[in-house]
Design a protein around this nucleic acid. Structure first.
Lengths: 351, 351
DNA sequence: ATTAGCACTCTCGGCCTTTGAGTGCTAATT
DNA sequence: AATTAGCACTCAAAGGCCGAGAGTGCTAAT
């Protein structure tokens, strides 16, 4: 599918005009916009052909034309320039993401920011693919019935658990177990923590209260949970600002989709670092068939990677949005990759 | 304001019919519903008087009547029975909240649940009023440049921080500092950690690298953050299901309000355990003036308390919603109050 | 105090007309 | 062969009109 230079210019102009106005674009309007010195009739002929090719469509016979999904696709692939981020925005992004002294909230902050500067709902998921292992164990004695398990993970996050038991656990036993766990369980993925190995540790520690099994259980749970993905969604009300979602039914479908974590996990992600765009029916998800998704992937090393994206009408300034998302994703990766304290938080009040 | 028995019955019937149908209620419809043996004309007269009193209103001259905010208020205060929770719902609630083996997510789970069973957007905030202090410190050596700060707080949550420094910190120093912090800083609120006290600790430990100040800084930050409230909002798309929010502008206002954490914090909360209802203009927040808020407070002891509420149209089954929220809040309080491990979590992937 | 009866009001849906934007096509022009 | 002026045609959107129906308020009778 190769378009004449003039067709390209016309398609580009239609897309960009439509993005700005949300109204079908007429041949006369294009004539003013473009500085092609041709009459509106010629432009009409070209538009007609673009319609034959499935790149433009008319809402009804006597209206102007607007891009189809394929039209947007061509625009995105071949015609749009790369949007850039203004000085102000760049500063705002650094301000919000970099300075956030709660690194674990960086992802959620980034999502909020993305929804703000794109005026669209945004979602972010932090994934932990690959295998997470424990690097270091520490058991902190509090009293005979209470102690804390602290685990430093291979991805530099620290997890902890306060354990309260009816049985008595003496500091000496905890010290011994601490050493045994550090000897036997570091560097091992959750799957390698077999019952035999646990039983062996229990014997080695001379534990008769079963506390070894309890600790092992928590450790396994921690390792498992760390692999689970977490998602945030923010700025959902932004969707309602856009004229294409004045239809409540449409808006409901998309917002309903976004509030379902299960569904969200199924959204496709770019393979490598970079931005990917899904236009209208290109989305597998039924609910997103008249929306577009722009999503960026980041990789912060140490098994930490994730995606951050926005959902909006197909009529969207793809260049701008893609540039901003990509910039935010980049900033996020840096913040997360820094050796800066990542482990923190905890407690019932969180999340 | 004391109503005749008959007026009460009529008002009650109007409210309940309107809750079910979303249509203004006519005198004839009431005649069928109520088993008062009076004619529709009599009912009309009564309704007229109720309208004079500001409890009912007509959308236009020749329509039935619906309750005003004051009408709902009287209904809620004096007329409605106490809704009860069905067996099935009770089970679902226990299932979801109790069994959640991630206690720190209990609040967010409860909010999701609330929005599900009420079919309304729901919000929850966990607050930590009162003063949180540290009960126990532990510094875990990892290598010469890395260690973990673990703090057990007075509210039984455990917080941690992975610290990476350019300077060298030997295990011996950490052990010493650990003892000093436990001696000097336990039981003290963040405000009591004066620079003098920190300097004194530094001298006592013979620390020349400044690591003491770094640790103190983190501890203060942890104590401060723990007092900060956290909020969750879920099920926002539910709002759009209700006929009164087919008007996108209205829906946008409410959803916009809900996505602004700052605003949310300003919502009034019940003083003690219990449920409070704010109808229409009773809400101080401008954006909620044509919505109602039902909110329950729970207290899980140990300085952990919070609220969980829903936002919906003024036409809402207050009895049902209040009963369900109250039940959920109760369940949540129990789960959180249990000695069960509360500290856990951490790491960049969370929240 | 209640009620039957009736006139009155107002919304809602359907139908028609007008208006205006924008197109497609044809015939002339370069 | 490509372009263009010109014009007839189409269609959505907005406004006006009408009839139907629901429900009320009021009056006069019980």
């Amino acid at each position: 599918m190769s378009l004449s230079e003039r067709k390209k210019r016309i398609l580009k102009a239609v897309v960009e005009d439509y993005i700005g106005s949300a109204e079908p674009v007429s041949s006369k309007a294009l004539q003013g916009r473009l500085d092609l010195s041709v009459s509106s009739a010629t432009i009409r002929n070209e538009m007609n052909e673009l319609e034959q090719m499935g790149l433009l469509e008319q809402p009804h016979t006597s209206a102007g034309r607007r891009p189809t999904a394929s039209g947007y696709r061509i625009y995105v692939n071949e015609l749009m320039g790369s949007g850039d981020v203004t000085q102000d925005e760049a500063e705002a992004i650094h301000e919000k993401i970099r300075k956030g002294d709660e690194p674990s909230n960086a992802v959620s902050d980034a999502s909020k920011l993305a929804s703000q500067i794109t005026a669209l709902p945004s979602y972010a998921m932090q994934a932990m693919p690959g295998v997470v292992t424990a690097q270091r164990f520490e058991l902190v004695y509090i009293d005979d019935h209470t102690f804390i398990i602290v685990v430093l993970l291979s991805n530099k996050s620290v997890q902890n658990r306060l354990v309260t038991l009816p049985t008595v656990t003496k500091p000496a036993l905890l010290t011994k177990l601490s050493a045994l766990f550090n000897a036997s369980f570091t560097g091992k993925p959750e799957g390698d923590m077999t019952t035999e190995l646990i039983a062996a540790t229990e014997r080695a520690a001379g534990d008769v209260t079963g506390v070894t099994a309890v600790i092992a259980g928590f450790v396994m749970e921690i390792l498992m949970r760390t692999q689970v993905r977490h998602t945030v969604v923010s700025g959902t009300s932004n969707l309602l600002e856009h004229p294409e979602f004045q239809d409540v039914e449409k808006a409901r479908r998309v917002l309903g989709y976004l509030s379902n974590e299960q569904e969200l996990l199924r959204l496709p992600a770019p393979e490598a670092d970079g931005v990917k765009i899904f236009i209208g029916a290109e989305n597998v998800a039924e609910a997103l068939r008249d929306a577009s998704v722009v999503v960026a992937k980041y990789d912060a090393g140490d098994n930490m990677q994730g995606i951050i994206g926005v959902v909006g009408p197909t009529r969207m300034d793809y260049a701008k949005v893609a540039a901003r998302l990509s910039y935010i994703a980049g900033g996020l990766a840096k913040v997360l990759a820094m050796g800066v304290p990542i482990g923190e938080i905890s407690g019932g009040e969180d999340e």
